[in-house]
Design a protein around this nucleic acid. Structure first.
Length: 689
DNA sequence: GCTGCTAACCTTTTT
DNA sequence: GGTTAGCAGC
């Protein structure tokens, strides 16, 4: 490592190690830079120092394009830049304080760019953004119109159709390739799907609607024009991308389009943590990055881990060493040694929940706050048993990942009305909104939308629309509400009026109106934090609040609570103690992802990501059997499980093995003892896996 | 034409 | 256990 002479290193970079400093100091106008940053190696900190250094060298925050995985990550980055900039000079502190207008996810930055360039690329600047469910609904509408739902053989469902479409867009692949690689059981429908997708695209365009993929696709298409590419490229002198291992071909392509020679381009990532290939992300982006440019990109590797104890790292390194292709880097740490990670054998789901609760409480007794502990799992539903147990014992928790606040039917209803008021051509929203009224169903709603489309723009005629007599008074009230929403009013007053109206409908729509009402009020509170309706709708779709507000209520901000999270949502975070649920084959790897070598490798990286979240304590829990619901024919049943195949016997000495509860002698002849016999059989098999 | 009922089917991870 | 399609009744 050629460390720069000490007297040349600015004070504000003094806290970095050599490799980190190397990355931070890489010339502002030099060629492309790839930073391979292992888990816990100070990646965010290094990137933040680099941004602060660019400011010190005279960069303007408005010229810095900072693409991170979530808006939360962007905010965190900016906070750190501001702190570092404060050490540079008061002037730089002020500069950073002004904020970074172009920091965010690919999707949110794309939305902003497209609104700005809309006029020049034939897009209406007032476009609406559809989330995944809205997109699926629109595809369903089109699917019906094309008569694809009434075939003798069953046509793929709306969600599958959208997934296929999205995979084709994000991988830049042909429909045939995508079908063959990921949806072989849908291959017979290729021609129909092609027709469906064309009609879907036309419908989106007619309705001034963009889906998630469009935000990237239009951006990519826009910069495929050389003049526009130069214009966008020159506006961003510096482009920095975090979590580059999780970008897809479309994203890599648009980066190349705006920075063809790679000058000013910095990407940071860890190939060992690539876990989003189901969304089209490809490890190839990061593995092949250096050779994309001439001369090739400079590569800096951060392999010193500041997070985990050596035994945890040794175990994680052992797991990831089984991967086939990667930039080789074994993480190392100088932290004092600690306990080995544990493989905890428990009987079933209920014992798993019991064990976790006991451990969490014991650690809290020992002085570790709940917030410093996390429970991770592969799939959102793996934690239901634990959630029940936590609720029963009155332990507050917040869950990340899985069903989002925005996916709840009642929240979608309110947003549909609001979006329809903003963009009357948005048919999915209108269709949903209109049918909220009693006595109005799909036929009436469809007719009303047709009428409105044929008439002059605006909803002046809304109240006059033909509805069944019984629904007329309610319809008048609704029309007045919509008219009120359109008038320029001070935000968030319109949403409050809408919430009030909706609450009067809820008793009829839901059995559990009480619970849902709290969500609507929550939505109103969230709305109040945005400056206006358009920003609210856009940013809510692109960066939804992560925790679901369940019946227990969201714990207060300053209260202590336990973190429950999917492994995917745990990306980039760390806790002192981590417990991983269901470290068994069938859950990790998920039995839905064992089809190909490629999928299995990703599941292995998921285990690696989960393990490297832990600083001091790590428990992998292995239930001997777990419950499976509703498999065709057999109904609910339990399945005997064995330890995840990613921890083979030769890695066992890197773990401490124990059972819980401590083994007690059992009376022979009870059903209990028969289970023990089968448990043993499962363990015998596991020895040879 | 709307609503409620039954039968069948699917079930991961996220912007 | 949740959602969707199709059918009968109002």
């Amino acid at each position: 490592m050629n460390a720069p002479a000490a007297h040349l290193v600015p004070d504000y970079l003094a806290g970095l190690n050599d490799a980190q400093r190397d990355a931070a100091l890489h010339g502002a106008d030099a060629g492309p830079l790839l930073v391979i940053a292992g888990a816990g190696s100070g990646k965010t900190n290094t990137l933040a120092h680099r941004v602060a250094h660019l400011l010190a060298e005279g960069a303007d925050p408005a010229q810095i394009l900072l693409l991170t995985f979530s808006r939360r990550a962007a905010d965190e980055m900016i906070r750190r830049v501001q702190r570092i900039a404060a050490k540079v000079s008061p002037r730089h502190a002020r500069l950073a304080q002004g904020g970074f207008p172009w920091a965010g996810t690919f999707h949110s930055v794309g939305a902003r760019l497209l609104r700005e360039f809309a006029g020049r690329i034939g897009v209406d600047p007032g476009f609406t953004i559809h989330d995944r469910e809205d997109s699926a609904d629109l595809i369903n509408l089109v699917r019906h119109e094309l008569g694809l739902s009434a075939k003798t053989r069953r046509f793929p469902m709306k969600g599958t159709c959208l997934a296929i479409y999205s995979a084709a867009v994000n991988t830049c692949g042909s429909l045939g390739e995508v079908l063959q690689a990921s949806f072989p059981w849908c291959s017979e429908w290729e021609a129909d799907l092609r027709a469906l997708f064309l009609a879907y695209v036309e419908a989106k365009q007619a309705q001034q609607v963009l889906d998630y993929d469009d935000l990237l696709l239009y951006w990519a298409q826009m910069v495929a024009d050389p003049a526009l590419a130069r214009e966008v490229g020159s506006r961003f002198r510096h482009v920095l991308v975090d979590e580059f291992q999780d970008t897809n071909r479309l994203q890599a392509g648009l980066l190349r389009a705006i920075k063809p020679d790679g000058r000013g381009l910095t990407v940071v990532g860890d190939d060992a943590q690539s876990i989003y290939s189901f969304r089209g992300a490809t490890v190839r982006n990061i593995l092949d990055f250096p050779q994309q440019f001439e001369p090739p990109a400079r590569r800096v590797t951060l392999d010193r881990n500041y997070r985990s104890t050596p035994p945890i790292l040794a175990a994680a390194n052992g797991v990831i060493a089984q991967a086939r292709e990667r930039f080789c880097k074994d993480l190392w740490s100088e932290r004092p040694s600690g306990e080995k990670p544990a493989l905890v054998s428990v009987r079933d789901d209920a014992d798993q929940a019991g064990y976790v609760v006991e451990q969490v409480l014991a650690r809290r007794e020992a002085g570790l706050r709940l917030k410093a502990q996390a429970v991770l799992f592969r799939a959102s539903h793996h934690s239901v048993r634990l959630e029940i147990e936590l609720t029963r014992r009155n332990i507050p928790f917040v869950k990340f990942g899985g069903l989002k606040f925005l996916e709840a039917a009642h929240v979608k209803d309110v947003l549909a009305v609001l979006r329809w008021a903003q963009n009357p051509r948005d048919r999915v929203s209108g269709f949903r909104a209109i049918q909220l009224l009693a006595g109005i169903g799909p036929k009436t709603a469809g007719r009303i939308l047709d009428n409105l489309q044929a008439a002059a723009p605006g909803c002046a005629l809304l109240a006059e629309q033909p509805v069944p007599d019984g629904a007329r008074p309610a319809w008048r009230e609704f029309a007045a509400l919509i008219a009120g929403l359109e008038s320029a009013d001070t935000w968030p007053a319109p949403l409050e009026r809408l919430a009030q109206w909706y609450e009067s409908q809820m008793e009829r729509l839901f059995d559990d109106a009480q619970v849902r009402q709290a969500d609507i009020q929550q939505l109103a509170r969230i709305a109040a934090t945005y400056p206006g309706r358009e920003r609210f709708l856009t940013e809510l779709t692109l960066d939804p609040p992560d925790a679901t507000s369940d019946e227990a209520g969201v714990p207060l901000r300053d209260e202590d609570y336990l973190i429950l999270s999917t492994i995917h949502s745990a990306k980039g975070r760390e806790w002192s103690a981590v417990s991983l649920l269901n470290a068994v084959d069938g859950c990790l790897p998920s039995d839905l992802a064992t089809g190909s070598e490629h999928e299995l490798e990703e599941e292995m990286r998921l285990l690696y990501v989960a393990m490297t979240r832990a600083r001091d304590h790590l428990d992998l829990i292995v239930p001997q059997r777990f419950y499976v619901t509703g498999q065709a024919g057999s109904g609910d049943r339990h399945v005997y499980a064995s330890r995840t195949r990613f921890i083979p016997n030769r890695l066992l000495d890197r773990f401490a093995s124990r059972s819980w509860p401590p083994v007690e002698p059992t009376v022979t002849g009870t059903p209990e003892s028969r289970q023990h016999a089968i448990d043993l059989a499962a363990r015998m098999r596991a020895m040879w896996r």
